[in-house]
């Protein structure tokens, strides 16, 4: 800790003394990086120390070392990977099944007032219904197989993408529409050259929100009638009172969330190159 403190102090000093703003900026950037790297480690450390001192009940809260000990065999046996891949597959399929119609309908609703007038009341009425509340209905309709799980995720993603896409189109500066019209763009050209690219930033905002919802819904969807998946692992661990395994599944969920959002960020940069340029 002492060394770290010294390091921190030094970088603060650099900032104070140096008249060269470039140097001090580098110094403070480094300082911030160190801070964000240290905070999770620090939390883990406190957790472990509290567990070792018996200040918290390890049967309920476990400890980093116990979780790590449970994690290794789960990884080496391939069990964790198996469940992770199953859940990731469901999320991906549900995500696509929800996002694609969401974008298409959202574009139409944004571009054409009659379509908006027709569908908006339906969307407004059904959107606030918690997706978890219709899970039993989904199970009855689609049965206990994969379809019901994918559908649950799809419906959650669908609404968020739809609403964001529509808002994205409605927020496009009308002058761009005028440009397209003045050059005589037809309907398809209008979609591809103005509506879609103009709404892309908002569409991605919707996709990111949808990804969060998908992670939430996978756990709920795998609660009922699943035999595998990270969500199933959590509920299984609950039944067996296997807290360490439960934490391992939570780590996987956090990891999945990170990977997916990283992936979305990457696609966003490729698809919307003008945004950060």
């Amino acid at each position: 800790m002492n060394a770290v403190e010294q390091k921190l102090n030094r970088s603060i000093k650099i900032e104070e003394i140096s008249g060269d703003s470039d140097k001090s900026q580098k110094g403070s950037a480094l300082f911030l990086k160190i801070l964000s790297f240290l905070s999770p480690l620090f939390l883990l450390l406190i957790w472990e120390v509290l567990a070792k001192l018996n200040a918290i009940d390890v049967r309920l809260f476990s400890s980093p070392s116990r979780i790590f000990a449970a994690l290794l065999p789960l990884i080496s046996s391939g069990e964790l990977l198996y469940h992770t891949l199953i859940s990731a597959g469901r999320i991906l399929l549900g995500f696509i099944a929800g996002a694609v119609p969401g974008v298409i309908l959202g574009l139409s609703m944004g571009l054409f007032p009659p379509v908006r007038a027709l569908l908006m009341p339906l969307v407004a009425v059904t959107f606030p219904i918690p997706k978890l509340a219709i899970m039993p209905l989904i199970l009855i309709i689609f049965g206990l197989g994969e379809t019901s799980k994918i559908f649950t995720i799809a419906i959650g993603v669908f609404y968020l993408v739809l609403i964001n896409t529509m808002a994205g189109v409605l927020n496009i500066d009308p002058i761009y529409m005028d440009v397209a019209r003045s050059f005589g763009a037809n309907r398809i050209q209008f979609y591809t050259t103005v509506a879609l690219p103009g709404a892309l930033p908002m569409i991605f905002a919707g996709l990111k929100l949808g990804m969060g919802t998908a992670l939430l819904l996978i756990v709920a969807a795998e609660l009922s009638a699943a035999r595998a998946g990270v969500g199933w692992m959590i509920w299984r661990a609950y039944d067996m009172f296997d807290i360490e395994k439960m934490f391992c599944a939570l780590i996987v969920l956090a990891f999945l969330g990170y990977i997916f959002s990283y992936f979305l960020d990457f696609i966003e940069k490729v698809v919307i190159p003008w945004k950060n340029s």
Partner: peptide
């Protein structure tokens, strides 16, 4: 063909 008053250049192209 119209040259519009405001910024009408598509930022996405």
């Amino acid at each position: 063909a119209v040259v519009f008053q405001g910024d009408s250049i598509f930022p996405w192209m």
